[in-house]
């Protein structure tokens, strides 16, 4: 579904990604773990070209997104993204947050879009918040709204950029549960996370990134229980205790 070929990204002199060739297949749930500064988030943000790669190719559904003249906006509609800091739209109500893009870009009628939005809100337990402004929501509720906003576009894949890192501890669970439900429904996901227990539970594959490369990858059991690379071992011994 998504394929990166020799993906490199520099910020000035800093090489953040040093040649990543990787494939995300349909139905896969991939967790990306690694120390901070290892390039996990940048890798994720290159998948929908939120960061444009310095070199290399990103192919999505057979279309090379890194080619000139590609209608990125069209392809981004099919890739939902959830951010660490939610980025919900504060000037719109919860319902408007969700319906804006479907009505504007998919030309869905407002009643249709609202009905679908309410259905999605019910699934994440936010039915009673439809008419509220996001300022009245807790962090966990904002993040659930952000997930629903992305889902309303019926994406083929969801990209999560540390979705629980900015949350108070008591709200992490509710957001992870929403993501878990998505996974159970068969959504293809790429999740950058520091929640090792969660990564182990939901992932079909785990990538360990270090210094802009994928140092090691495998099933959760392989990577967490029998890491081969000394770097992976060192990282895991620090975070798993």
């Amino acid at each position: 579904m998504i394929e990166t070929i020799a993906l490199c990204k520099n910020f000035g002199d800093l090489e953040v990604l040093r040649g990543i060739t990787e494939t995300v297949r349909n139905g896969e749930v991939i967790s990306v773990i690694g120390p901070s500064g290892s390039g996990k988030s940048t890798f994720l943000r290159c998948l929908n070209l939120l960061e444009s790669p310095t070199s290399g190719t990103v192919v999505f559904d057979g279309v090379s997104l890194t080619d000139r003249g590609v209608d990125l906006n069209l392809h981004r509609q099919k890739m939902g993204m959830v951010f660490q800091h939610f980025n919900v739209f504060p000037h719109l109500t919860v319902l408007q947050n969700i319906t804006l893009a479907p009505v504007l870009l998919k030309k869905r009628s407002r009643p249709d879009a609202e009905a679908y939005a309410r259905e999605l809100l019910a699934r994440v337990g936010l039915s009673d918040k439809a008419q509220e402004h996001p300022r009245r929501l807790s962090g966990g509720q904002k993040q659930r709204l952000a997930i629903v906003r992305a889902l309303a576009m019926d994406p083929e894949v969801m990209l999560f950029d540390e979705p629980t890192s900015a949350l108070d501890p008591e709200m992490v669970g509710e957001v992870l549960q929403v993501i878990k439900n998505l996974v159970l429904q068969g959504m293809t996901c790429v999740i950058v996370t520091h929640e090792m227990g969660f990564a182990r539970e939901v992932s079909s594959r785990v990538l360990f990134m270090d210094e802009g490369r994928i140092e090691e990858q495998g099933s959760p059991e392989e990577l967490f229980d029998r890491p081969r690379s000394p770097r992976t071992q060192a990282f895991l011994s620090k975070v798993l205790r």
């Binding site: 951010f83 980025n87 739209f89 504060p90 000037h91 504007l104």
Partner: peptide, 27 residues
């Protein structure tokens, strides 16, 4: 206005102009 607002709008598929008029300018 937080750049994250533009990023969120662009990832939904809004064009730069749509993100500006619908999301950034009202704020």
């Amino acid at each position: 206005v937080d750049p994250g607002q533009t990023e969120a709008a662009r990832t939904l598929g809004l064009s730069a102009r749509q993100a500006m008029t619908r999301i950034v300018l009202p704020q």
